[in-house]
Each structure stands twice: as C-alpha cells, then as structure tokens.
Simulated scan of single mutants.
Amino acid sequence: MRDRFTVPIMLCLTFIAGSWAIQPRWISLFNGKDLSGWVARGDATWEVKEGVIIGQNGRGHLYAAPVVEDFEVKGEFRITGQGKGANSGLYIRASEPEDNPDGFPRGYEAQICNNQEAHTGWLWKPGKPTGKATALLTRDGEWFLMKVRAIGDSINIWVKDQLVMSYSDSEYKKGKFAIQCHNPGMMVEARNLYYRKLK
C-alpha cells in the first residue's frame, strides 16, 4: 500500500523541485554602496546614503547598465516633496535620446507620483499617460514596493504586491532601467533593486 503512494509523491516532488530549479535568478542592480554600474543624465544630483540611492536638486535620470528585453524588475521607492510636487518613475526598455542624452528617456515608465490623475502605477510613454492604474496605493514620504514585468508586448505593474496595470504595446522592445528625478524641489529614493531575465 505504501508503494502505491510513494511513487506518485516522489514524482510530484521531483516536478516541483525541477520547476524551482529553472526559475531565473534575481540579479542585483545596486551594490548598496555606490553608483557603480549607473550613469547619470540631466541636472539632478545622485548619491548613496545608508544603502539608498537618492536623487534631488533638479531634473535627471539615472540609468542602470543592463540592456534587457523580457524581464521582471522590482524595488522599493519613496518620493518626498521639498517645496514642489514630487514626481518620479521607474523606466524600462529605456534609452537616452540620441539628440539629447539629458532629455526624457525613450521607453516605458512605471509612474511614481501621488498628486495627479495619472498616478503611481500608471504606464507612461514619453510625455503620455498610456496604461491606467486601477488604484492609487501610495503617498508621499512612504516606502513602497513596485514590480514590473515585460514579456513581448505585455506589460504589467504591481504596487505593494497588487496588480494595478496591464497593457499591451510593442513600440519599445528592449533597453535599460532608469530612475527619474522629475524636477527641483523633490527627492526620490530607491533601494533593494533587482531584475531577472525571462528570455
């Protein structure tokens, strides 16, 4: 009787272990110490303090080195007003404009902003709110987790582990990750930044 159940159980465990084994591993984008592997564009100033990337004092974008196509990326973010409205974003499949490397990236942006209709969790294309987030789950001065998955033309955004945006678009197929500091009078912070390739 015991043998009748042992074989199926062992097969199930083998399948589960195999599934775990083929999951792509998470790769750190940030060493927690300095901005090695990142390139700053624009006027914002970027620094690292106590394991946190901090951007402020202007408009600019901080690009990570990897160029990826299909992936998941996640991190913890916080924005704070310093006299003006705080606005940031996590860019995916992004690149510096050839005619103006300090300008807004060409790519998709997972919005981070709590003071406008196209708020945190919306998908933006350059200058245009594109994929609507179903709920605003964040507020200024509060850390939150964001995750983005892009596979082919399918793009999904999670905020605080809740899926808030799903959209299909194929304009940008691969590129870099970037963090935005939208304007003077605000601060953006980021930590625990990881990605994994899905192709």
Rank of each mutant, 00 (worst) to 15 (best):
R106T: 13
R25A: 05
K49G: 01
E117A: 13
M187K: 15
G107K: 08
K132A: 13
L123Q: 00
T14D: 00
M146C: 02
P126A: 02
I54N: 08
Y91S: 01
I157T: 10
L136W: 09
K160A: 12
F144N: 04
D43R: 14
L11T: 09
C12G: 12
S88Y: 08
A21K: 02
A135P: 06
G75C: 12
G83K: 07
H119D: 10
L62Y: 06
D70C: 10
G127W: 07
L137R: 14
K74R: 15
S88T: 08
W26M: 03
G121F: 02
N192E: 11
R25G: 09
I179N: 00
A150Q: 03
I79L: 10
K128M: 12
R41L: 10
R139H: 13
Y195T: 02
G42H: 11
F104E: 07
I92C: 06
P126V: 11
V164F: 00
G85W: 01
K147I: 05
K33H: 09
G175N: 09
T45M: 07
N183F: 00
F5K: 03
R106C: 11
K197L: 11
D99Q: 13
A21I: 05
E47L: 12
T134A: 13
W38H: 10
A110Q: 03
F71S: 00
W46I: 07
G103M: 05
W143T: 11
C113Y: 10
A94W: 04
S88I: 05
T130I: 03
Q116H: 10
A133S: 15
K199E: 10
V68M: 03
V48C: 07
E98S: 13
V159N: 06
G103R: 05
T14N: 01
M1L: 05
L136Q: 15
F30G: 04
Y172L: 13
L11Q: 09
Q82W: 01
M10L: 13
V68I: 13
W124C: 06
A190T: 12
K160S: 12
M10E: 03
Y108D: 09
N156E: 14
A94M: 09
N156Q: 15
G141V: 09
V67E: 14
W124Q: 03
M10F: 02
G60H: 01
E69I: 02
A65M: 12
K199T: 07
G18Y: 03
N156V: 09
Y91G: 04
F71E: 03
W46Y: 12
R2G: 06
E189M: 14
S166C: 05
G55P: 09
G75D: 09
A118N: 13
G81F: 01
Q82K: 15
W26L: 12
K176Q: 15
D169G: 13
A86M: 07
V148G: 00
N192V: 06
L123M: 12
I157S: 02
V188T: 12
C113H: 11
A86R: 08
L11S: 12
L11G: 01
K173I: 10
D140A: 13
